[in-house]
Design a protein around this nucleic acid. Structure first.
Lengths: 325, 325
DNA sequence: TTGTATGCGTTATCAG
DNA sequence: CTGATAACGCATACAA
């Protein structure tokens, strides 16, 4: 428990060199005579010297860490996303700050405050107001993750338009007529795009789309609850198109739990292709998005000196049993 | 975008006061003549001055942020845990750094490096070696989360001994004889304690416990896979006791998927009481632990000036249908 | 190759 | 109340 850690000056004194040399040795920059380097290294080791991030940060005028802002980290999507982000950041020697907004009112202020602690911030779509994003971008480099590109702010997202292809598959290839869309577009750019693609496919197939989506959260438990409401009445839909795999799995579990057959009684589809989706019976038809790479690309963009790129990562339709295939 | 932000000195110059006064005004400490205060405030507002976290941190010799080290954030357990931790930290105005070890070899080094960036580190059990923990504790305040208490290092964990009570319930109340334990004690103090409690209950009931646990990961998908291996053979167990709810849900889904009845053909139990557990059919018998509070208590302990407390939070047996009740 | 001196942006002490 | 001025710990031009 903490006798104060040694400083450059102390190490320099003990090793009989200047603080500049200690700095050069400890950070591996500049040329130092091997013999001297050895001596300094020895002292550093012995006294357990570790450069103060505080002093270094101030001198270099950079924090050496980045932040990622997300709505909440429930489910495999955010786990993977953050993992990809974190890995890339650590690889570059940067620390990772997290800010979960959890729909709190103070979230915007927290995010703004975070800008004073990091060299860059990745903001997940649907977490803060556009104005906040603008103000943020004026203070520190920002990358929008899974959200609408804004002005000159770089962004990374997945191609949600594949949802149209999936819907077409259900409508045309399987001939389903009564589809419902499960998931709330409110506060989620991704879900908004998916819902729009769902509607568009209906228009193109000449089938009337439902008036609105079934607004629920994005977790498994939300799906189970939705299944209860959707499958109880007499007018059961032909297919339930979910905004993500988690809710789809929840709906699937709920349906199976009430003794319904999938896809016999009702078809179910998701979005993401998480691990569970290939494991359940029947396998979940879904759209694969490179979640981990989404996070990684975001981190890279954030740490790249300056970029105004707008990346759209490809997605892929994955047909399994739950749609009727 | 960023024209450099103004510094104290610049604000002081413009407002025709000393930097000390600017500091006093901006941080609201000390006495300043109202008139002067107004003038300074005016300039601060106009030029958008915000004290640099870098400069402040160095002067105050504290980072204003803490870190939490965990194995990986898959599943609701870690989501909740981190959420509880983060909430408490934010409440105290501290930033939150994350370090996912993901079984990487370099994890210990990363954690050590992190000690230079924060005022305290919460380390989840099973993430780093005891030596690393010791070295870490010499550098910065540490709290062990869900792990074995070590020396004078404070810790927070849940009471895993309830697993003995659950096992007794299965053995004695339901009369099951062939139980299996699913989950790997390797690298998880929690699972280790649960496995031990499972064995102890067997001894007390005079029933022979299985030779070893079925070693699998802690995610839903792992449970599904385990179900395949466990339920295929001719010698099906009476009950499958899982190390956590996620794997239990996976096993349940796997069992139901193969047309087995639960608890008719096989009983299944978990640990955690996550949201899904009360929603599935049949409801999952489990042990509730206050995950969120675990994270929150950890953050509080970490930020308390000095503590050597070893908190053990209570757990509660939750009987639902999956055990046969 | 090595050392000296200065700056990074605050906070805080101590006179006035 | 207010203002100089000294830390805080390190990096780095610049000089030697």
């Amino acid at each position: 428990m903490g006798s104060r850690r040694p400083t450059v000056r102390e190490i320099a004194e003990i090793a009989q060199v200047s603080i500049a040399t200690v700095s050069r040795v400890s950070r591996g920059t500049g040329q130092v005579r091997p013999e001297l380097r050895q001596r300094v290294l020895q002292v550093i080791e012995e006294y357990g010297y570790r450069p103060s991030q505080l002093g270094r940060a101030l001198a270099e005028r950079k924090h050496g860490s980045v932040a990622i802002v997300f709505p909440g980290l429930a489910g495999p999507y955010f786990s993977e996303l953050i993992q990809g982000f974190e890995y890339e950041a650590m690889e570059a020697g940067a620390g990772v700050h997290i800010v979960g907004t959890h729909k709190r009112a103070a979230a915007d202020a927290d995010v703004l405050a975070m800008s004073a602690r990091v060299d860059g911030i990745a903001v997940h779509g649907g977490t803060v107001k556009p104005e906040t994003l603008q103000r943020l971008a004026a203070e520190v480099p920002v990358v929008v993750l899974a959200g609408q590109p804004l002005d000159g702010i770089p962004s990374v997202r997945a191609d949600n338009s594949q949802m149209a292809e999936l819907t077409r598959h259900l409508l045309v290839d399987h001939g389903y007529r009564r589809l419902v869309f499960v998931g709330s577009p409110d506060g989620s750019p991704d879900v908004t795009e998916r819902w729009e693609a769902f509607q568009q496919a209906h228009r193109e197939a000449g089938v009337e789309a439902p008036a609105g989506p079934v607004k629920i959260g994005l977790q498994q438990s939300d799906g189970v609850i939705a299944a209860g409401e959707l499958l109880n009445g007499p007018s059961r839909p032909d297919a339930i198109v979910c905004a993500n795999d988690e809710t789809a799995l929840g709906v699937l579990i709920g349906a199976l739990g009430r003794g319904l057959r999938v896809p016999g009684d009702v078809a179910i589809t998701g979005f993401d292709d998480v691990a569970m989706s290939s494991l359940v019976q029947p396998g979940l038809t879904t759209i694969r998005q490179p979640i981990r790479e989404l996070g990684a690309a975001t981190a890279r963009l954030l740490m790249a000196d300056q970029s105004t790129e707008n990346l759209v990562l490809p997605t892929e339709l994955v047909l399994r049993g739950s749609c009727g295939c």
